[in-house]
Write a protein that binds this DNA or RNA. Structure first.
Lengths: 227, 227
DNA sequence: CGGAGGCGGATTGTTGAACAATCCGCTCCC
DNA sequence: GGGAGCGGATTGTTCAACAATCCGCCTCCG
C-alpha cells in the first residue's frame, strides 16, 4: 500500500482532465475504509505532498467531498473528516424515513427490480448464517440503496448513497460497538416479501417502524459511547 | 448594473475566506435571474477578469455550482449553464413526486408551520388577483419549499431548493411560454386547507395528481417549443 | 501564582504566471 | 469539394508567492 518514499502516484496516464475527480475518489475511499477516522484534520500541504498533487488540485477535491458532507471546512482552520453527532444521526434518519417509504409506496415495482431485491436478501441471509458481519453490513446498505432506486430518480439515489456514506462514518465512530446489523436481516427479508405480495402500505409502515427502532438503537449506543 | 469598466468588485471587506462562496452566490443569482441563459458557456478567463477574481478561485465556485447541477463541465471544453431537456423535467418531477407527498404524510405539522403555509397561500392569492405573475411564481416555489420543510430535514430542503432552481432553468428556457402558475394557486390553497383539516392522505394523493398534471403540461410546452 | 496580552510560527486563502494537453476553425492540397 | 494538418485559443494542472488568520507560547503585570 504505502510505497517507498511515503508518496503515491497514479499509475495510468489518467493525467489531464481527471486528477480532481480521481483525488476525491481516493480520499472518499480512505475515509470510508476507516483510515482517516472522523475528526481527522486533512492538512493541505501534507496531503498534497503525500498524494503528489498540487494544493490547488487537492482543494478542488475537497470541494467535492464537502458537497457530499463527508468532510467539512472550518474557515481558516482547515478541513476535517465529519464527526457525526447525535443530531447527524437524527438527520440521517429523517431523510431515510421520508425517502425510503416513499419509494416503497410510489416507486415502480418492476419484475427485475423485485428480483434484485430478493437477490440482495439472499446474500444477506447467507452472510447471516456464515456470521460474516461486514458482508451483512454491505448487503444491508445495498438493500436500502435498491429500495430508493425504486423511485427511478438518479438524484434521490445519489442522496441516499451519500446518506449511507455518512452512516458508515457513524459506524466508524463506534468501531467496537456490537454488531448492529444482525437483527435487521430478517426484517429486510419480510419487507421484500411484503413488496412481492404487492402490499406496499404495510411494507412502508413496517419500514418506518424499522427505521425508528434502528435510530433509537444507534442513538443509545452513541450516547453511551460518545466521549 | 454594469459599472464603468465592465468589471465588479465586492464592496465589503469580504476578503479572505469567502471569495469562493461569494462567487458561487453571484453566479447562481445571475443564472437564476436569466442573464446567462441555459446553454451559455462560462469562459474561465473572461469571467475571472470580469468578476475580478483569479481563475483558480473561479474554478472553486464552478465546483459548487456543478455539485448543484446548475452548471455542467464538459472536459476540455468548459462549463456551461445546464440546458434542461425533457428527461431533466421528468427527473425533477420524479423527485418531487416522492419527496413532497412524503413530507405531507409524515412531516411534523406544527401550528407555526401550518400558519406559515397559509401565509404563503395568502400571498399567492393576492398575487393572482393582482395579475402579478412573477409574484405567483415566487409564492408557488416558496410553498413547495415549505412543504418539504415539514420533513424537518435540512438535507431534503437543500435537495428541494436545488430542484426548484432547476425548475427556474426550465422556465428560463421557455421564456415566452404563457404563464404557467395561474392554474395552480387554487390547488395550492385547497392543499393547505386539507392539511389544516388533518386529512394528510388526501393532501398527499392530491399533490401527486397535481404534480402529474404539471409535469405533463411542462413536457407539452417543452416538446412544442424545444428547437 | 495566575491570567491578560502580545509575539511568532504555521496553516489557510487567494493570486498570477507558466506550461502541457486538448479542442476548434481554418487553410492548403489533392 | 473534401479531408489532412496547422495554429490559435481554451482548459487542466502545477508552482511559488504573499496576505490573512489562527494557535501555542512566552512574557509581563497584578
Amino acid at each position: 500500500m504505502a510505497d517507498s518514499a511515503g508518496r503515491e502516484r497514479h499509475a495510468g496516464p489518467a493525467a489531464h482532465a481527471h486528477t480532481g475527480a480521481w483525488l476525491a475518489r481516493v480520499l472518499r475511499e480512505r475515509i470510508s475504509r476507516g483510515e482517516l477516522p472522523p475528526g481527522t484534520k486533512l492538512a493541505e500541504q501534507a496531503l498534497a505532498e503525500q498524494l503528489d498533487v498540487s494544493r490547488n488540485t487537492l482543494r478542488e477535491a475537497f470541494g467535492t467531498l464537502i458537497a457530499e458532507s463527508i468532510v467539512e471546512r472550518v474557515p481558516n482552520r482547515g478541513v476535517f473528516v465529519v464527526k457525526p453527532e447525535a443530531e447527524d444521526v437524527r438527520e440521517i434518519y429523517r431523510i431515510r424515513r421520508m425517502v425510503e417509504p416513499a419509494a416503497l409506496l410510489w416507486g415502480e415495482l418492476t419484475e427485475p427490480a423485485l428480483a434484485g431485491l430478493e437477490a440482495i436478501v439472499g446474500r444477506a441471509m447467507a452472510a447471516l448464517e456464515a456470521g460474516d458481519v461486514p458482508g451483512m453490513a454491505d448487503a444491508n446498505q445495498q438493500l436500502h440503496g435498491a429500495v430508493v432506486a425504486l423511485s427511478g430518480s438518479r438524484t434521490l439515489s445519489t442522496v441516499m448513497d451519500q446518506t449511507l456514506a455518512r452512516m458508515r462514518l457513524v459506524f466508524n465512530r463506534m468501531s467496537d460497538a456490537p454488531d448492529f446489523h444482525t437483527g435487521y436481516a430478517e426484517r429486510n427479508r419480510d419487507l421484500v416479501e411484503l413488496l412481492r405480495a404487492g402490499r406496499r402500505e404495510e411494507a412502508a409502515t413496517g419500514l418506518r417502524d424499522y427505521l425508528d427502532t434502528a435510530e433509537a438503537e444507534l442513538l443509545g449506543h452513541l450516547s453511551r459511547w460518545a466521549r
